[in-house]
């Protein structure tokens, strides 16, 4: 199952005007790993994620998904094995109904109608959203939009899930449901977020980015308890690792 691996080597990306967004980024993510990517606004998290599915192509360096390098010619295969869930579910839900949105990917894979149907059913079932099937996206709550967006990626049966700020804008209970849902997935996961407590709960490993480079890559428990490192990167301790404001005791989320 080597195709669940992501390998990024000396990745560099420059915008059209020459400013560097990513510099010398290297890491390797093994099959079944869950990795958090954190960093202040503008640190390069989203830009990095866009390289993993080939929406952006490296200016220098390489990105490999399994055995396949991410190149213009391999985009089709790459996008089949990497499912991306974007920051704003409104951008991801563009079809008239949830059902059609979830079917969008499988239909682009030219699957026969029965297969499309079974994939749509499975994907919606996996996120407990079968009841949303015929609803138009504008009639979904924030949490429902998020789960529907995840289903649109799942229906393509990806090996790797890339999620950009999945918990942004969710109410506490919807956020909790999302964390439980993601925790149940066996995919290789890469999650970029400011929600450090969610990272703490979901990802054993964390990468910190700062000004387009990786400044730390290690076990989440270590990285997220390093007060100095976090402060330098424009972050702070996760709430769960901070003292309780009332009783002053520490309650990590998990």
């Amino acid at each position: 199952m080597s195709h669940h691996i992501i390998e990024v080597k000396e990745l560099e990306y420059r915008y059209a005007d020459g400013t560097a967004a990513l510099r010398n980024v290297s890491f390797r993510i093994e099959h079944g790993e869950s990795v958090g990517v954190i960093g202040e606004n503008g640190a390069g998290k989203s830009t990095l994620l866009l390289h993993l599915n080939g929406c952006l192509l490296a200016t220098k360096g390489t990105v490999r998904v399994g055995d396949i390098p991410v190149l213009r010619d391999t985009l089709k295969q790459i996008r089949r094995s990497v499912g991306t869930i974007f920051q704003d579910p409104n951008d991801q839900l563009f079809m008239p109904t949830v059902e059609e949105d979830v079917a969008f990917g499988p239909l682009n894979m030219h699957l026969p109608p029965e297969d499309v149907e079974s994939r749509v059913h499975k994907a919606l079932e996996a996120v407990n959203a079968l009841h949303l099937r015929n609803r138009p996206p504008h009639r979904l709550s924030g949490g429902e939009k998020r789960t529907a967006a995840i289903a649109t990626a799942l229906s393509m049966s990806p090996d790797i899930l890339v999620l950009d700020e999945p918990s942004a804008g969710l109410d506490p209970q919807a956020r909790r449901r999302l964390i439980n849902l993601l925790d149940g997935f066996k995919h290789t996961k890469i999650i970029a977020s400011h929600d450090l407590d969610m990272i703490l709960a979901l990802c054993p490993r964390t990468i910190i980015m700062h000004q387009g480079t990786i400044v730390a890559d290690g076990a989440t428990a270590d990285v997220l308890s390093d007060r100095n490192l976090l402060a330098k990167s424009g972050l702070e301790l996760p709430l769960g690792a901070q003292g309780c404001p009332i009783c002053n005791a520490k309650h990590p989320e998990k």
């Binding site: 599915n53 929406c55 985009l75 996008r79 990917g105 682009n108 990626a153 393509m156």
Partner: peptide, 13 residues
Amino acid sequence: QRVHTAMLARGFD
């Protein structure tokens, strides 16, 4: 453009 990216990510041609 973001929607376009999201469409591409799901194999839009």
